[in-house]
Structures are given as C-alpha cells and as structure tokens.
C-alpha cells in the first residue's frame, strides 16, 4: 500500500463531556475535534497533559463513547469488526503479569484473528524472533525488563498485521539501544505502507517519524498539518526552521561561541539559566554547528546534559506557547 491522500481514519466533530457526579461541573475533554489521518503516513498527536489526546485515542479505539460526533475508519463508522485492523501499543505494559510472552501473544492473536493453533504458534514464534524475545518466550511478563516488555508490547500491537497502529509514548523509559531497535521496527512498519498514529511528548520522535502532526490544546485541535487549516496558520513541517536547545552551558562557553562565530549560522539566540536556545534555518546546519562546537571545545557535553534539535514551529506550538 502506498501513501495516498485518502484518510484511513477521520474524526468528525468528536466531542466528549465527562460528567463525573451530580456535584461537579462537567468537563469537556475533547471539544468538537475534526481531523484526518492519511493512509500510509505517520501522524503525530501532540499536546500537553490533559489536552485531550488520550481521550481522543480512547474514542478512536472504542473504549470511550463520544458525546457527539463520529469516528470513521476507512469511510465507515468504527465497528467492533473494523477494530481487527487496528493495533494499539499503550504507554505502559498492560499485559497480564502472570502470562508468559508466548501465551500473551497467542491469546491476543486468538482474540484478534481466530486463527488455528498451528498457524498461531508459527506466527507467535516468528514475531518473538523478530523482536528478539524468542529466548524468553516461556518467561512470565512480570519477570521481563522494561525494554523487553516494550518489545513485547510492539509485537502484540502488530502481530495481527493491522493497517493502522496507534502508539502511545512508545519510547518512554527505554535505553538508547532499545530506542534504536523500536525506532527501526516502527520505520519498517511504516515503510510497508501502514498508517501510524504517534501520541508523544518527545519532539525528536516527531522529527524522526512523523509526516504530519495534529496538536491538541485544551481539548481542541489547535493546529494541524493535514487539512486546510494548515494554510491559515502557515505551518509546514518541511518549511525548514529548527530550534536547538542545549542545557548546561556556562557564561564562558557562551562568550567563546559568540566571539568565534562572527557570521552567525543561527537566526536567533537566547540564553538563560545555563540553557542556550538557538534557531537555525536548516537541520543540517544546526547539527554541523553543534558538532563543530564540540570538536573545538567550546561546549563540553556531559552525559547528563540535554541536547535537542527540534522543528521550531512544532517546538513553539508545543512548548513555547504553553
């Protein structure tokens, strides 16, 4: 399947009001949100805590019933049967602690597809091999490390070959090696023509994976790169403009940097509380500048320092406007 402009999933004026009890004011969690998720693309779902991302995802998965509006999957109202084409990887491990890796995937597959035991067994074996968990297939989930549990969660989300996979903070709490592996698998899955929805707080994952973004704010869709609202706000991911944030820079390092670069490659610089923030037109310029600064000894990156180069528009929308 190649990416097309056809949406695989569409939210139409999706609205959710939680009225917890008689004495509390009803809370509007999602407010008339309309947006599309294009087939074959990875769409990032961004927003602060409480912005309405999780409620929207739960409505997409049919776990929460919308107060108003509809979720359309492949042009039709979302039904129980259409959910077999959706995979879901939650933020934390939600598989039962007392099942083994093999059993968890087998029961999941049985519920999703109803395939025969022999077919299920082969599928489970190959999936466990793919995510390098074959050696621990008889281990109970409670005995797995966090990295292993995330790998199993990825296997569980994709073992039934869904065309749409929803990932909720897939990289949280992973070490660099596990991140690298998971990133590779997600990219491979996307390249196979599948659609991904990535719910995240980490902007580097947006840069690495997303073709489009929807940004939620106070229950509303604040910005999107998908539909006509894009032009109104002038947001395009490819409109190069990057933000580099570097923590742990002291005054002397800052002086060295500003003295050395007479022709400043950045368009704007801000410095406060050991945090230097620079704006670059292109990602490559930002990256090569950072590399040169490290090589010339202007900046010493310690293991605990935080360095990030993020798309400026997304950064401003997501962090700057908070």
């Amino acid at each position: 399947m190649n990416p097309t402009s056809e949406p695989i999933l569409e939210l139409r004026k999706l609205h959710k009001v939680f009225s917890q009890d008689l004495f509390r004011k009803p809370t509007v969690a999602v407010n008339e949100v309309s947006c599309e998720f294009i087939t074959g693309k990875c769409t990032g779902l961004l927003g602060h805590n409480g912005a309405g991302k999780t409620t929207a995802i739960k409505m997409i998965l049919g776990l929460i019933k919308p107060t108003k509006g509809a979720v359309l999957f492949e042009g039709k109202n979302l039904s129980v049967t259409s959910k077999k084409n959706i995979g879901y990887m939650p933020e934390i491990n939600r598989l039962p602690a007392n099942l083994t890796c093999e059993e968890a995937l087998d029961f999941h597959l049985r519920g999703q597809t109803g395939a025969r035991r022999s077919k299920r067994k082969n599928l489970v074996e190959s999936e466990l091999k793919r995510v390098s968990l074959l050696d621990v297939k008889h281990k109970k989930i409670k005995e797995l490390s966090k990295g292993m549990a995330r790998r199993l969660a990825w296997a569980q989300a994709t073992i039934h070959s869904p065309t749409l996979v929803i990932l909720d903070e897939p990289f949280s709490g992973l070490d660099p090696v596990a991140r690298h592996d998971l990133l590779k698998w997600i990219k491979e899955y996307k390249e196979a023509g599948n659609t991904l929805i990535l719910c995240t707080h980490e902007l580097w994952t947006v840069r690495e994976l997303c073709d489009e973004v929807h940004i939620f704010k106070n229950g509303k869709l604040a910005y999107t790169t998908v539909d006509r609202e894009v032009d109104q706000h002038g947001i395009r991911l490819n409109a190069a403009n990057y933000h580099l944030a570097l923590a742990g820079v002291d005054e002397s390092s800052l002086k060295n940097i500003t003295d050395h670069y007479k022709l400043k490659p950045w368009s704007d610089m801000q410095y406060k509380d050991f945090l230097i923030q620079l704006h670059f037109k292109e990602y490559e310029v930002a990256a090569s500048w950072l590399k040169a600064c490290i090589e010339q000894g202007f900046i010493v990156i310690r293991f605990s320092d935080e360095v990030s180069i993020d798309h400026n528009t997304i950064y401003k929308l997501f962090v700057g406007d908070s």
Partner: peptide
C-alpha cells in the same frame, strides 16, 4: 485487576465485544 492493569483496555481495543 484487569481494569487496574489496563488489560481490559488492551483487550477491548481489539475486535472483542
């Protein structure tokens, strides 16, 4: 327990009534 662990959510996210 199933609700607390979130396993209910995971199962009902699939094609199970």
């Amino acid at each position: 327990d199933s609700n607390k662990e979130g396993y209910t959510e995971l199962q009902l996210a699939g094609p199970i009534k």
